Computed example of a mutant assay.
Amino acid sequence: MSMPEQNTDTDTDTDTDTDTVRGLQGLEDSSPSVRLRTALAAGTSPDPRFVGELIERCAVEPEFHVRDMLTWALTRHPASMTVPALLEELRSERAQARSQALHTLSKIGDRRAWPAITRALLTDADDEVARSAWRAAVVLVPEGEETGLARVLVTQLGRGERPTQLSLSRALIALGEVTTPALRAAMTDLDPRVRAHAIATERLSRNPDAGFEFAIEEAKRVVVLGRTGQEE
């Protein structure tokens, strides 16, 4: 009696799925170097089935260099697959999920993501999320909407510690001259931290080689002396 033919196509698909799952198991390894190699492999040989796992790992990966490799791996996949999934992450309750999704969107540079860069993200209570939103916004903002973005970013002047303030200054400077009116107005703000940050940003835009630390210290002296910095 002849044996029934096996469904080799199904078996092949199953084997491939198993290989895919096995290949991504390294993302859960306790060793950062193993996770890094796994992310590198996923980007070197992109597969649509990797996208979900890579994004999920971005939300919980503790090591910066591994997260950066995960982002690189995602940029190696088609934007038509990654961008919709990343936009979903922007609504996550996990701050790292939002931050990494924004970071990855900025690297992909698909401007269809712009409508998702909301005021809520630009003013997010978590500094890392806000910083990632500022960087993404500068990359993705459509022509003609820079002034509106600048007005939102200026509301964050004086926020956080030096790294956060430097990120905001860089974002404002990257937008160019459209930020000048909003910055000038902020130089007369009642909050001395806002005034100092606005003055430092304006000075840094004129003299990038001076460095932010120097610019902020100079701006503080201007504020203490009761000047706005507009007379220069």
Rank of each mutant, 00 (worst) to 15 (best):
E143K: 13
L153F: 00
S92C: 02
R37H: 06
F50L: 05
G52W: 08
T188W: 07
V178A: 06
A136D: 06
L54T: 08
A219N: 05
R184S: 12
F50E: 00
A125Y: 04
E63W: 07
D124I: 03
P48C: 03
S92Y: 03
A171L: 07
C58M: 15
L140P: 01
L90D: 04
A73C: 05
H197Q: 05
A219F: 06
T18A: 14
I117F: 10
T201I: 00
R159F: 04
H65N: 13
A73H: 02
D68V: 01
P32N: 02
L102P: 01
S2V: 10
E143M: 14
T75H: 03
L204Q: 12
G229P: 09
M69D: 04
M187D: 02
V129E: 00
V224R: 13
A185K: 11
G144A: 06
L183M: 13
P48M: 00
L54C: 04
A210M: 14
T71M: 03
L40V: 13
A215G: 07
D126S: 12
E89N: 03
E177I: 09
R170A: 12
A79I: 09
V51Y: 04
G43P: 03
E143R: 15
S99Y: 09
P32Y: 03
L70S: 10
V194S: 07
R184D: 12
A42E: 11
L183N: 06
T44G: 15
V138D: 01
